[in-house]
Amino acid sequence: MSAQVAYLGTTVPDWVRELSSSDPLQRRLGAYALGEIGPAATEAMSDLAAALQDPVAFVRVWAAAALARVAPSGGESVTVLIAELGNELAFVRSLAAWHLGRLGPAFPGIEQALIPLRQLAGDKDPSVRVEAALALGMLEGKGAPPPELKSLCT
């Protein structure tokens, strides 16, 4: 069955193989592609779970986001994304915040992310602050960014 499922013409097993690539960009792509395939990629769950331990932070973040789409009931993704909100690299923090917002207010365990996201309001990086505010807007059910951030979204 899984051979029928593909993203950009590439099947699940081939995307799983990308998770073992030596190139972090390829691993990132593999995780993203499996997330796009979604629940139909259940056979990739264990590989995505393993990718949560990837040595490269942005790969871990994309793997967590993909796992959340492949297996929406799992809480592991939220845990990893919250942990990455404290990453030393600003772009990783902003990426994790962005993904948390995209999980939506109905995602199991997402309420744990609200306080860490609020704490990012004082982050030294403006991109992180904006992403955190946008994510909070999504998770608190407003569904739209705060007015003061509107210009960044148009």
Binding site: L25, V56, F58, V92, S94, S127, V130, E131, L152
Partner: peptide, 29 residues
Amino acid sequence: GETTTFILRQVEEDGHDSVHDGVLLEARL
């Protein structure tokens, strides 16, 4: 309300690309 950005940029002649440092890669803003 979301947007995304694609950046087409010249890579330095020595082949070094800060994309691989991840700086630009995930920085939507």
